[in-house]
Design a protein around this nucleic acid. Structure first.
Lengths: 332, 332
DNA sequence: TCGATTACTGAAATCGTTTACAGCGCACTC
DNA sequence: GAGTGCGCTGTAAACGATTTCAGTAATCGA
């Protein structure tokens, strides 16, 4: 069922069919209708690959993510898909790209299939690979590090958010505040940890290495980290997890240990995934509008596609403190 | 940076470059290395659209979903992406396709961009549209209804699962069991409701219309539904939600109403999303291996791509009861 | 020495579109 | 009645790859 079949059936040339389809140029109403009727009858729709070969545009955006697990990523995709779809674009998703090689491979295999890319590669090292892309291709970096001045980027106010949450905990009287931080070479994780340290320093609280344990952003790792923290003597009075998933794991571990939240231990997370408010107790967290993160990334990419060369933008998505019951309510 | 550039630079014909790239036919080691070197230096990678135009294969799977919100869908995508990626395929995602027209449009715009489709369209009416696809294109239906014998399908044991959970609640002594069911024309929702009714009938418990309230699978609707149920006199002693998200909303509403779970009201969900076990109290639910649902759908589609014509398969994914604290633990 | 085989390479057709260009009829102007 | 412009349509050249077919040089057996 190609354009030729339609042309033959309608007794016109392929050029005319194409013109009818694209509502371009001058086609007499008579032939327009005839062609449209034939196309409808035959159930014709143009072949995407052929079309994008000649028009040099695919109407698809590539999305490279490190993972797909958890509400954080699904919200991002949702945001991206939402604005992409509104603009008539599809999204080509590809996940689990941490290492340089994987990213490379993904990039190659996407050439000629997408008009631009949204890349979230929190791994600090993998970033360097991206430098090779520089300028050759429209790219938006999600949570790009500081070195990324040569791209459009959107970042979360990680440092500020973590600092504020830590300050809030301090204001509520906590001194032994533990942090469950994220993966080693992860940019977001590093920034959030830095914010925590900043707040401690500002309040003159000594940094105690044993209060910082590493997780990997999964519920299970939050659970494990807390088990470890509870061994400490004296134990921390507050636990700040670098994302909500780990905070949820933490809540679960505390409950099993027979500790009450927030009375015995206060808990806070980061991201404000949709479920945070439904936890018991509802989770205090640093709110990030995750789906908006995706939406704005897509929007940025789309304008960059339309406008061609223009200076790169560095957007920052602000965070707000959301105080719920898990850390004991608002300080007066 | 096309194949021609590489050919010119390496002093060979485009045919040879193509052969080197695809590791096909006989190419002397000398030219092979020379071409490979040039390609690497120029950073060449073939143009996807051009390639799929001639090979008539895109190495991409289309995924049509009704929505992207919540862990259920993200787990499905994760499963699909996992097996697709392992087979060297990309996935093209498109969401929010409920109505016939939207599905139509999505289908058209995917022609020539994907080798096959995974469609999840729980809306019963939209299904009829799909009939037009019949055989013309490799399709796997997720949660396809009974009418779908002309497709490969994977369904969840909705009826069985709901029946078992309801029976469990009955076995624990509950008689006033409320059901928060899903959207009106949703297949899964209808089946789960049917399972609930089956169990009631089997135990000779009268169906009470006011105990069934409608939700839309979101946390918020679960919250609202429970508020409504608590008005009843006497109030239900157990609440069975047609999915976990609504169960989570229910837990939240009960907590706010000052009711204890499971002592005052037992709660159960359906799906066993990853977070269910981390709720407080941990959520009893009907376990469905969601990511496996995606994995098997992708696998089914891939074999169908490879094997061409073969009888359609109807797979059913079994469910298991997962009894946690929210419904009072195991019955002795 | 010669024909046949083998190993490699290139020319050209092809996939399904879009689009620049040219052609053709017809009405209009002078 | 010839020239001009306009409105519509068709021809053919792209786009960037793959693949068939044919051609060439080297090697081999007799």
């Amino acid at each position: 069922m190609t354009i030729k079949d339609v042309a033959r059936e309608a007794g016109v040339s392929v050029a005319t069919v194409s013109r009818v389809w694209n509502e371009a140029a001058f086609v007499s109403t008579a032939t327009r209708q005839r062609v449209a009727a034939v196309a409808a009858r035959l159930g014709y729709s143009p072949h995407g690959a052929a079309r994008s070969l000649i028009t040099r545009t695919t109407h698809a955006l590539g999305v490279l993510l490190p993972d797909l697990y958890g509400e954080f990523f699904s919200e991002i995709i949702r945001g991206i898909d939402h604005t992409a779809q509104a603009a008539g674009y599809h999204i080509l998703v590809s996940s689990s790209h941490d290492s340089k090689d994987e990213i490379d491979a993904a990039l190659r295999s996407m050439r000629g299939r997408v008009d631009g890319l949204i890349i979230m590669s929190p791994d600090l090292e993998a970033r360097r690979t991206l430098q090779t892309l520089q300028g050759s291709f429209p790219v938006v970096l999600l949570n790009g590090g500081a070195e990324a001045k040569s791209f459009d980027t959107i970042t979360i106010e990680n440092h500020e958010g973590a600092r504020e949450m830590t300050r809030h905990l301090i204001a509520r009287g906590h001194r032994r505040i533990a942090m469950v931080c994220g993966p080693q070479r992860n940019y977001d994780a590093a920034e959030r940890l830095r914010g925590y340290h900043t707040a401690l320093t500002e309040s003159g609280i000594e940094h105690e290495a044993s209060l910082v344990v590493r997780g990997d952003f999964s519920e299970l790792s939050g659970y494990g980290a807390v088990s470890q923290l509870l061994e400490l003597e004296p134990r921390p009075t507050a636990i700040f997890a670098a994302n909500d998933s780990m905070a949820i794991g933490a809540l679960s571990a505390l409950r099993e240990a027979g500790l009450r939240v927030p009375d015995d231990v206060a808990v806070a997370g980061f991201d404000d995934i949709p479920l945070a408010r439904y936890m018991n107790p509802p989770l205090s967290t640093v709110h990030v509008d995750i789906s908006q993160l995706g939406e704005r990334a897509a929007a940025l990419l789309l304008t960059s596609l339309r406008q061609g060369n223009r200076p790169h933008q560095q957007l920052q998505l602000s965070t707000t403190l959301v105080i719920r019951a898990s850390c004991g309510g608002l300080v007066s």
